[in-house]
Design a protein around this nucleic acid. Structure first.
Lengths: 223, 223
DNA sequence: CCGATATAGTTAACACCGTTACGCAGCACA
DNA sequence: TGTGCTGCGTAACGGTGTTAACTATATCGG
C-alpha cells in the first residue's frame, strides 16, 4: 500500500543520475557489508579452530590479509565482534531447541527432548557453548532486558513446556518459571562439567543425562 | 634412628660456627618462605579483590613492593601461583563439605546437606568457585590422577554418601559413581548459572536449590 | 571538470600482559 | 680477603586490545 502521507503522491520517476547514485551507494554498502561478513566468518572460524583464549584480533587480521585496525571500521571492539559470533550461535541453539519439541505433543516428552537437545548442542559445539555460557560470563551483566530476552528465547520455550506439564495435571502445581530455571541449571551443569572435566567421557555424560531425566521424570510427577 | 652409614658415628657436637651457619641457613630459608607466603597471601587477596580476569603479576608485585620478576624466584610461573591459591580454596571447600555431613546419620539427609553446602560455598566464595570450576577449566586437563584425587577428595565423600543411600535399601540399586556425578553436575549447574546470570537473585537460587533437592528426594527413592 | 569532503585502509604508538636474560649487590665460605 | 652463590632489579621480547595520525581513493557540490 502506497504511503499517501508523503508529499509527492505521483511516484517521481527517478532520473538516471539518481539511479546511478543509488546504485553506487548500494554497491558501497554491499562492499562494506562484504568485508564485515568476511571478518565475521573468519572470526567464527578462528574461534572454533583455536578456542576463545587464543582468539586475537591480530591473528584474525593476519588470516584475512588486513591490518588489525581495519576490524575497528566494522566492529566497535573485540567484544562486539565476539558477541556477533555468539549471537549466531544463540540463533542456531534456539533453532535446535525448537526443533526438538516438534514430533511429540506430550509435554513431558517435550521436556525430556529439550534437555537432550540442550546437552547435544553443548557437546556438538563445545567452543560455542563455552563462550555462550561459561567463558564470557561478564557479557550477561551489561545486556539490556531486550537483548537478554532475545538470547534466551529458548528459555521461554522451556518455561512454556513446563507450564504445559503443570496444566496436564500429572504434576503438582508449581511456579513454572522457577522449575524451568532449575531444569536449565541441571542441564547446564551436565554440559559444563562434561566439557570441563577431562575424566568425564561421552559415555559418562550419556549416563548423567539419563540419570537426570529419570530423576526428573519421577521427581516431578505427583506421588 | 641415627644413620650409621655416615662416616661420623659419634654425634659430633656442633661447634659454635656450625650453629651460626645452620641458624643462618634456617633464617634465610624462613625469609624465603616468608616472602613466598607474602606473595601467596597478596595473590589470594588480589584475586578476591579484582577477580581472576584482572589479576596480573605486575599488579601483585606493585602491591607488595617487589618487582614482578621476583615472583619467579618463588613460583615457576603465574599458573603455579594461581593453582596454589586454588589449592587452598579446595582445602577449605573440602572442609566445609565434610563438616556438612556431621550432625546427621541419615544418608539422604547427608546428601541434601552436601548439596546445600556445595551451593553455599559457591555463593560465599564466588571468585574462588569461578576459578576452581569455571574460569580455569584448562588446568584440569594437565592434572595427574593423584592431583585430581587430591582436589576432588570431597567427590569421594559424595560417592560414599550415595552408596550409603543405596545400601539403605530405600533407593533402587544403581552405580553410585554415575549418580554422584549427576548430582554434582546439578549442583554445579545451579551455582555456575547463579553466578553468571545477573537476573538470578539469591532468592531464585534458593528456590532452585529447594526444587532440586525435592526432585532428588522424590526422584531417587523407590516408587 | 575541479576542489572539498568523506571514507577505508594503513602505520605507529600506547599501555598493558607474561616471561626471560642479564647485571648488581650482599652474603656465606675458603 | 677474594670468590662464588643467590635474591632482586632493570631492560627487553613478543604478545594483547586500542587509539591517533596519515594516505589514497572515491564521492559530491559547484
Amino acid at each position: 500500500m502506497p504511503d499517501f502521507t508523503k508529499k509527492k503522491v505521483h511516484l517521481p520517476k527517478p532520473t538516471l543520475t539518481e539511479q546511478v547514485r543509488q546504485a553506487s551507494v548500494d554497491r558501497r554498502e554491499q562492499e562494506k557489508g562484504a568485508l564485515r561478513a568476511t571478518i565475521f566468518r573468519a572470526a567464527a572460524d578462528l574461534l572454533v579452530d583455536h578456542g576463545y583464549a587464543a582468539f586475537s584480533l591480530r591473528k584474525l587480521a593476519a588470516r584475512i590479509g588486513y591490518s588489525a585496525t581495519t576490524i575497528y571500521r566494522h566492529f566497535r571492539d573485540k567484544d562486539e565482534l565476539i558477541l556477533a559470533v555468539v549471537d549466531e550461535s544463540f540463533a542456531k541453539f534456539g533453532q535446535q531447541l525448537h526443533a526438538a519439541v516438534y514430533g511429540t505433543s506430550d509435554p513431558f516428552e517435550q521436556l525430556e527432548a529439550l534437555g537432550r537437545a540442550y546437552v547435544k548442542f553443548g557437546f556438538d559445539h563445545p567452543i560455542h557453548y563455552r563462550v555462550m555460557f561459561m567463558e564470557r560470563c561478564d557479557v550477561w551483566e551489561k545486556l539490556s532486558d531486550s537483548e537478554m530476552h532475545d538470547k534466551l528465547g529458548s528459555y521461554e520455550l522451556l518455561v512454556a513446556t513446563v507450564q504445559r506439564c503443570i496444566d496436564s495435571g500429572r504434576m503438582p502445581a508449581a511456579e513454572a518459571e522457577g522449575l524451568a530455571c532449575t531444569l536449565w541449571a541441571h542441564m547446564h551443569g551436565i554440559v559444563s562439567l562434561g566439557l570441563t572435566m577431562p575424566f568425564l567421557e561421552p559415555a559418562d555424560v550419556q549416563r548423567m543425562t539419563d540419570h537426570s531425566s529419570a530423576m526428573m521424570r519421577q521427581g516431578l510427577l505427583k506421588p
